[in-house]
Design a protein around this nucleic acid. Structure first.
Lengths: 107, 107
DNA sequence: CCCAATATCTTGTCAGCCGATATATTATGG
DNA sequence: CCATAATATATCGGCTGACAAGATATTGGG
């Protein structure tokens, strides 16, 4: 799973959001570190929808602007959970090795 | 940082290794989950060397076969540490949200 | 003698990120 | 009144990078 896809799924965990709302939520939940590009976002959403990790939820017209909402599917939630576990494992293996290096010095 | 690059750096934390040895070490430290492709490996090594995150260490001829060793630079160790922290943060934010979802149900 | 394993590297293809652009509405401000 | 920014959608093209495949070379086993 690519990193933009990971963040899109994460942004959809609590409630359905529309594209622009996802971009803002990702920026918020990453403390401004990740700014999802608009050209990236819609491509990612298409691919996630094709894989049924997200699904169209509803459309709203608010203040004359169309909002197309997506929600996380059960399959998407499982995929995100698996990816989170994988990332945590990767981070841990690197951190452990680095710690051993500081303790013992480079070989 | 790409995931293959992350694993290459991790494999080099404890000691300098040559390309083929890196590939085997990555497979070992990921419990077989990540099998670094040979075409990927050398491209990644070139890019990491260009960025000075790894550096050529030495060359050995062992049993008629050339071994070109790379080592992690200090800059590479710092970059790996930062990336590990970032990955851990990403994994944690996703996990926390998923946990809240199970507890409170989808909104 | 051929094949597998060890070891390097190159080339070509495909996926995907992202900047740029297009379109439309509402609010703000000069 | 018009320009600009924010909100909101979507598409297109360029570039980077992952990976499969193949070239090259040595050693050892069947």
């Amino acid at each position: 799973m690519t990193e933009p896809a990971f963040f899109v799924l994460t942004a959809l965990v609590d409630e359905p959001r529309h594209g622009y709302g996802i971009a803002r939520e990702v920026e918020k939940l990453s403390d401004g570190r990740v700014q999802l590009k608009i050209g990236t976002l819609y491509g990612v959403l298409d691919r996630l929808a094709a894989d049924e990790l997200v699904a169209p939820d509803r459309e709203e017209v608010q203040q004359g602007r169309l909002r197309r909402y997506y929600r996380l599917t059960d399959s998407g939630a499982r995929a995100l959970e698996a990816e989170a576990v994988r990332l945590a494992a990767n981070a841990r293996s690197a951190s452990e090795r680095l710690q051993a290096r500081h303790a013992g010095g480079a070989a």
